[in-house]
């Protein structure tokens, strides 16, 4: 069949996917053209075409800015803390959930821990502010115990940990889904055979359970490393006012404050472009590593 005949045959299907395809074309690929401001002295009233072309000037200006390098450092610190604290939490919770024998109790706990995933950051920040902020339950308890009035919400040094704890509160439960799927796929006969061979509880855990969750754990870890530069932008932007900028400015908030807040479009665009490219390379690299480990990764070749 010729291409034209196939197009004619599939015209209904093509019409079905056209609006969505158009969306991706404009809002994902089309948006990339905005990054052209990285090479311009962009002024909104002169537009993309009318603004002066400046080559790589924006890049050198940004790379000479110590605040930028500080934001890179903060991003790495915040993501490092998040990796150590947030990554193992869902696995541990999934193992715990999986060991609950009563179906009713397990369903109840699952329903509870999945819920915060659906609560938006503006709400979560309000909740944490009420519990941990000044005048909240935490400081009240502290002063009742005579411990002063230190609040985890307003501490520079604690900021990465605060972000990690909020992220755990929000998404640890939701993160168990993928681990639970791996755990539920374990053939019960494997456990039975191990038990008959005299393997105790601990031995069965290391010989059956851990190998079953290892592949997905490695995969998630690799994919997580692929998002090293991205940080919880909304979460940080919402709470940046509580702490000093020197400990809370990350690459994303730097871009925001340079571009949208101060109108330094060219420099903000330069960083955004670097971030987009490096982010893409990291994700592709992470996929490559996942494939080397024999995993599907973020995408897999269509069969």
């Amino acid at each position: 069949m010729s291409l034209w005949e196939r197009v004619k045959r599939d015209r209904v299907l093509l019409a079905m996917l056209a609006p969505g395809f158009l969306f991706f074309l404009v809002f994902c690929y089309g948006a990339l053209f905005g990054d052209i401001v990285a090479f311009e002295d962009y002024q909104p009233y002169t537009g993309f075409l009318g603004s002066a072309w400046t080559g790589l000037q924006n890049f050198s200006a940004v790379f000479a800015d110590p605040v930028f390098w500080q934001s890179v450092r903060n991003t790495l610190v915040i993501n490092g803390v998040a990796l150590v604290l947030c990554f193992p939490a869902p696995l541990a919770l999934a193992l715990m959930l999986n060991s609950i024998l009563s179906g009713k109790v397990r369903k109840f706990v699952q329903s509870v821990v999945y819920l915060p995933h659906f609560i938006g950051w503006t709400i979560i920040v309000a909740l944490f502010e009420q519990v941990l902020g000044s005048g909240g339950a935490f400081t009240h308890l502290e002063s009742a115990l005579g411990l002063g009035s230190w609040s985890p919400m307003y501490s520079d040094g604690f900021f990465p940990f605060l972000l990690a704890f909020e992220a755990i509160w929000k998404d640890c439960g939701w993160g168990t889904i993928i681990f639970l799927a791996a755990l539920m796929n374990i053939e019960p006969a494997l456990y039975e055979a191990a038990a008959l061979d005299g393997a105790g509880r601990r031995h069965r855990f290391t010989a059956v359970t851990l190998p079953a969750v290892m592949p997905v754990t490695v995969l998630l870890l690799i994919l997580r490393l692929g998002t090293l530069l991205a940080s919880g932008f909304q979460q940080i932007l919402l709470q940046q006012g509580n702490v000093s900028l020197s400990s809370s400015q990350v690459i994303d908030t730097y871009v925001y404050s340079q571009g949208i807040a101060s109108g330094n479009w060219g420099q903000a665009g330069a960083i955004a472009l670097v971030e987009t490219v490096v982010g893409l390379l990291l994700v592709l690299g992470a996929n490559k590593v996942a494939h080397l480990f024999g995993q599907d990764g973020f995408y897999r070749r269509e069969s």
């Binding site: 809002f27 948006a31 472009l273 987009t276 994700v283 592709l284």
Partner: peptide
């Protein structure tokens, strides 16, 4: 394959807030 890849590829990059804002 083309349409699918075009859609899936959008999961792997982020134009960023500046590009989105200007668009």
């Amino acid at each position: 394959r083309f349409f699918l890849m075009a859609a899936l590829f959008t999961m792997m990059f982020n134009p960023g807030i500046i590009a989105n804002f200007l668009l």
